[in-house]
Simulated assay, not measured.
Amino acid sequence: MGELYRIAAEQDAPRLQQIIYGAYEQIRELRLSWPAAHADEELIRTNIREHECYVLELDGELAATITLSKGEEAKAITELPFLKWFAVAPELQSRGVGSKLLSWVEQEVLARRIGAEAVTLATAERHPWLLAMYERKGYERYRAIDFGNGDGTMHLLRKRLQPQLQE
């Protein structure tokens, strides 16, 4: 299987909208107010233009995406690089595709290119499996926030990418 990791282009928006919409079905069912869960193609194009949106292609087909936020919403809650809009095509979930993309972004983009010591992301406490999934991938809860928007407690999770820099 040919793998290609790259930054997304605006022409990827239609397929990314399908991937994100499908992957975020449970988020909509839980009535969480995450923008990605209801993103149309124009919002996805905006995400691609304003942030660093990465994709993993498998055999020439988009399979997964994750965004390194450049926005003020992330800077308001953390000084660390902030990942968001992580999604894997529903037909490819539970096959390690998302783990490959997440690991690549953590190591190649954040640790090597940016030199980040750690990275953070957020998820909802009431989601039935996301917290546990991220904890299995080495993320640790470090801050709980309730934004008062009906989502309940959101957890910021951090993963140390270069522990030698912490010593």
Rank of each mutant, 00 (worst) to 15 (best):
M1V: 13
G2Q: 14
L4S: 05
R6M: 09
E10D: 13
Q11P: 00
Q11H: 13
D12T: 10
D12Q: 12
P14A: 07
Q18K: 13
Q18Y: 00
Y21H: 14
G22C: 04
E25M: 11
Q26M: 14
I27N: 02
R28P: 10
E29S: 10
L30C: 06
L30E: 13
L32W: 09
L32T: 07
S33N: 15
S33G: 14
S33K: 15
H38D: 11
A39F: 08
D40V: 05
E41M: 05
E42F: 01
E42W: 02
L43W: 12
R45G: 06
R45A: 02
R45N: 03
R45C: 05
N47Q: 12
N47T: 15
R49S: 09
E50P: 03
C53A: 13
Y54Q: 05
Y54I: 10
V55W: 04
V55K: 09
L56E: 01
E61Y: 01
L62C: 03
L62K: 02
A64E: 02
T65E: 08
T67N: 02
T67H: 00
K70Q: 13
G71K: 05
A74R: 04
A74E: 01
I77R: 01
T78N: 10
T78G: 01
P81H: 04
L83M: 05
W85N: 14
F86H: 13
P90C: 03
P90T: 11
E91H: 14
E91C: 03
L92R: 12
Q93G: 11
R95Q: 15
G96R: 07
V97T: 15
G98T: 14
S99D: 12
S99G: 14
S99R: 15
L101H: 04
V105T: 08
V105M: 03
E106W: 07
E106V: 09
Q107M: 10
Q107P: 00
L110F: 07
L110M: 07
A111E: 01
A111V: 11
I114P: 01
V119P: 09
L121S: 04
A122L: 06
E125W: 07
E125I: 05
H127D: 04
H127E: 06
L130K: 09
L131D: 00
A132Y: 06
Y134Q: 04
E135M: 12
E135C: 08
R136N: 09
K137N: 04
K137H: 11
G138E: 08
G138P: 09
Y139E: 05
Y139Q: 00
Y139G: 03
Y142F: 15
Y142I: 11
Y142E: 10
A144N: 12
D146Q: 07
F147V: 06
D151Q: 11
T153G: 00
L156H: 08
L157Y: 06
R158Y: 02
K159I: 08
Q162N: 07
Q162F: 00
Q162I: 14
P163H: 12
L165Q: 13
E167A: 14
